[in-house]
Amino acid sequence: MRYLRLCLCSIVILLFIPMNAGATSWVYHFVVWDGQIYKMTEEKVTSIDNEIGAVTKYSDMEQYKGNFSNTYPKGTKYFAIKGIDTEIAIAVQVDKGQYLKAINDGEYTYQRQTNITLNLYKVVGIMALFIVIYILFTSLRKKR
């Protein structure tokens, strides 16, 4: 009986230990606009045309749909560059009156990331918890 309680307590404690979900490792700083990923450069842009969009979601940990960035906060504005097609490059406003060039690096493929190992661990832990509870109640009934 003592061992069952110890097992039950151990499993409960294990279920509450926070698991580290893997963070996304980015190769470079980028913004996403109109389904395309644009690699940030250090090249300053002075010939700005009209505003074309803005960052709608920021994260340095996960991928998201839409005008997403791993560098700039939500609300950071995108601009067309005079004389350059937006399919080649855009300008990102990094400060008031300051813009950096971002070069198109192809289609942005959003993939929702799940940590299968973490989910599997939790399912196995919960199953083990139910098994221990079942054994505990069964042994208690036999004692009566």
Rank of each mutant, 00 (worst) to 15 (best):
M1C: 01
Y3L: 08
Y3A: 03
L6M: 06
L6S: 06
S10A: 14
S10N: 06
S10Q: 05
I11E: 04
I11C: 10
I11D: 00
I11S: 01
I11L: 08
I13R: 00
I13S: 04
L14G: 04
L14S: 13
L14A: 12
L15C: 07
M19D: 03
N20E: 10
A21Q: 04
G22L: 08
G22I: 09
A23K: 07
A23E: 12
A23M: 07
T24V: 04
Y28A: 00
H29K: 13
F30Y: 06
V32N: 01
G35L: 04
Q36H: 10
I37K: 01
T41M: 01
E42T: 12
E42G: 02
E43L: 03
E43F: 01
K44M: 05
V45Q: 03
S47F: 03
I48V: 08
D49T: 02
N50L: 05
E51Q: 13
G53Q: 06
A54H: 12
V55N: 00
T56L: 01
K57Y: 14
M61S: 10
M61V: 14
E62R: 12
Q63E: 13
Q63R: 06
K65E: 15
G66D: 12
F68C: 10
S69P: 08
N70D: 09
N70C: 10
T71R: 12
Y72P: 08
P73V: 08
K74T: 15
K74A: 10
G75S: 10
F79H: 09
F79I: 07
A80C: 10
I81R: 05
K82A: 11
K82N: 11
K82F: 11
G83S: 05
I84G: 00
I84W: 08
D85Q: 13
E87Y: 13
A89R: 02
A89V: 13
A91S: 12
V92W: 11
V92E: 09
D95C: 08
Y99I: 12
L100G: 02
L100A: 04
K101A: 08
A102C: 03
A102I: 02
I103Q: 01
E107V: 14
Y108K: 02
Y108G: 05
Y108C: 07
Q111M: 13
R112W: 14
Q113P: 08
N115C: 14
I116Y: 11
I116H: 08
I116A: 11
I116K: 09
T117H: 11
L118H: 15
N119C: 09
Y121G: 04
Y121V: 15
G125C: 11
G125R: 09
I126F: 14
M127C: 14
M127K: 08
A128T: 13
L129S: 01
V132D: 05
I133Q: 05
Y134D: 06
I135S: 04
L136N: 06
T138G: 01
L140C: 03
L140S: 03
R141W: 10
R141K: 12
R141A: 11
K142G: 07
